[in-house]
Amino acid sequence: MITLLIGKKGSGKTKKLIELANEAVKNSNGNVVVIEKGLKLTYDISHKARLVDSDAYGISGLDALVGFVSGICAANYDVTDIFVDSTLKITGNGVADVETLTAKLKALSESSSANIYLLVSAAAEELPESVLEYVSK
């Protein structure tokens, strides 16, 4: 399952991501991974989740992000939930990448049975219509 957490800067997306990640840790029978840009969530996310700084691994661009998430799923079959904070900053190409990224990660999510949550700093009207079905209500 793919879920997009969308909204403009300051709309509470990161707070929602933190709540969802900590809830996933409580309910998961596997592993929860949170990918962030920079180390800003260290004290907000449960220590039971795997917190990964995308900058530390040189993740930059759509293909690098998809490859990294694929590697996480391939290396650990027990991953149940993956959260990506600052998705557009990591991909570096704004909303232009959302459709392709969502399609690639949806296929990965289905094959690995991992729930993938993408935090996207954009309003619904800025996104392609094809991805609106994945927007969190």
Score class of each variant (00 low, 15 high):
G71L: 11
S70C: 02
G61K: 05
I72T: 07
A74Y: 09
Y134F: 15
G67Y: 05
E110C: 07
I72L: 15
V66L: 05
D85S: 13
V98K: 01
L39S: 10
V69S: 01
S130R: 10
D78Q: 13
D44V: 00
L65W: 00
K48G: 12
E129V: 14
S112H: 06
V79E: 07
L39W: 09
L105D: 00
E129Y: 09
S54I: 04
L101P: 02
G92Y: 08
K106G: 03
S121D: 08
A103E: 15
S130W: 07
S46T: 07
V66G: 01
H47Y: 11
V120I: 15
L118P: 01
E133S: 15
S112C: 09
N93V: 14
E110L: 13
S136Q: 14
D97E: 11
F68M: 04
T87R: 05
H47I: 09
S46C: 10
A64Q: 10
D44M: 12
E125W: 10
E110P: 00
N115Y: 09
L65V: 01
G94D: 12
A64K: 14
T91L: 05
S46R: 08
I90Y: 02
I72Q: 15
G71Q: 09
L39Q: 11
Y43R: 14
L127H: 00
L51E: 01
S136W: 13
S121P: 04
L88K: 01
A122C: 09
T80D: 13
G61V: 05
G61W: 04
K104L: 15
L118H: 03
V66K: 06
S60D: 10
D81W: 03
L132A: 03
G58F: 03
A64G: 04
L127I: 01
V69E: 00
G61N: 04
I90L: 06
L41V: 02
K40W: 12
S121C: 12
T91Q: 03
S60K: 15
F83G: 03
Y134C: 04
G61Q: 04
G61F: 04
C73R: 02
A123N: 13
T91R: 03
